[in-house]
Design a binder for these strands. Structure first.
Lengths: 136, 136
DNA sequence: TTCGTTAATGCAATCGGGTTGCAAATATGG
DNA sequence: CCATATTTGCAACCCGATTGCATTAACGAA
C-alpha cells in the first residue's frame, strides 16, 4: 500500500510533508525523535508542523510513540494491526545506551505479569536497554 | 532502619529535607514525580533542591527513576537489594490512565525476550497501563 | 474546473520540566 | 567549637512540547 493510500485509509489528508514523514518512518528500523525527523528532512517543514504531523499519526494509529529514558518522544510506524481505535497493545523497545537509538522489536512473547487485585491492565510495554548491533 | 541510618549507609549527609523526602518515598505505594513531592511537602524546599535531592537518591541507590508516558520522571524508594553500583535491574511499573499514578510492582517474573542477533541487553523494564484499584 | 469548506501549515509566543552557577547556610569530622 | 566539604536557595537558562492565530492548501460538491 502506498503512503498516500495509507494516509487516506486512516482518515488523514494527503500532504507532501505527511508523505515524506510517513515514508521516513516506514523505512526506518528504529523509532525516530522529532529532532531525528527534522535532521532527516532539513528545511522541509516547521518544527511545529512536524510535531503536529507526528501527533496526527499517533492519533490516527499510523505510528506509536515511545518515551525514552531522557523523556523524549520517539515515533515508529505501526505494524498492520494498528488503527486509531486499537493500537497493537504490546510493544517491545530496545534503547542502545551508547548511540541512544530506539529500536522496535516486533516479535516478542508477552510475559505473564501478575498485578495486584483490583488493577486492570489495558496495555503493556517492554523496554530493554543495552548495546545495539552496531555498538556492541 | 531509620531514614537517618538509611541515608548515612548510602553515603549521603543527613539533612531535614532529605529525611522528609525519603520518608515520603518510603511511605508511598507509588512512584512520585517531583511535582508530587512538592505538593506533599509544601514550602518545604526550593524545587531545585528537591530536584537535587531526588537526583542524589538515584545516584546513591536509594531510589529509582521511572519515566512515564508524558516523559516526566517519577521516583520510588528502592527495595533492599538496590545500591549505588547495582540497581535491581528488572522493574515493573503500572501507570493508571485515569489518575496518572505510577505504581511499582515488585514481584513480577521476568519474561523471555528474544532480541535480534548482535544486540546485548543489560537491563529491562516492563510498563503496564490501565486502571488502578481506586479508579477501576 | 472552479468554488467553498475544512483541515494543514508557519510563525511567534508560551509553558514546564530539567539543569547550571554561584553565594549563603548547614552538616560532619576533628 | 572550628574548619571544611556539602547542601541549599535564588536567578537564570535550556530545550522539548504545546497553543493561538492568520495564511495556505486539500478535497468533495457543483
Amino acid at each position: 500500500m502506498s503512503v498516500e493510500e495509507h494516509l487516506r485509509s486512516h482518515g488523514l489528508r494527503v500532504t507532501s510533508i505527511r508523505k515524506d514523514v510517513l515514508d521516513l518512518l516506514q523505512r526506518s528500523d528504529r523509532a525516530l525523535s522529532q529532532a531525528d525527523v527534522e535532521r532527516a528532512l532539513p528545511d522541509r517543514a516547521d518544527r511545529v508542523t512536524l510535531f503536529r504531523v507526528l501527533q496526527s499519526f499517533e492519533e490516527a494509529g499510523l505510528a506509536h510513540r515511545v518515551m525514552d529514558v531522557q523523556g523524549t518522544s520517539h515515533y515508529a510506524s505501526c505494524s498492520k494491526e494498528c488503527n486509531a481505535h486499537a493500537h497493537h497493545d504490546v510493544h517491545a523497545h530496545f534503547r542502545c545506551n551508547r548511540c541512544s537509538s530506539v529500536f522496535c522489536l516486533e516479535r516478542v512473547t508477552l510475559p505473564e505479569v501478575t498485578v495486584p487485585t483490583g488493577f486492570v491492565v489495558t496495555s503493556s510495554r517492554i523496554e530493554l536497554e543495552g548495546r545495539c548491533r552496531g555498538c556492541a
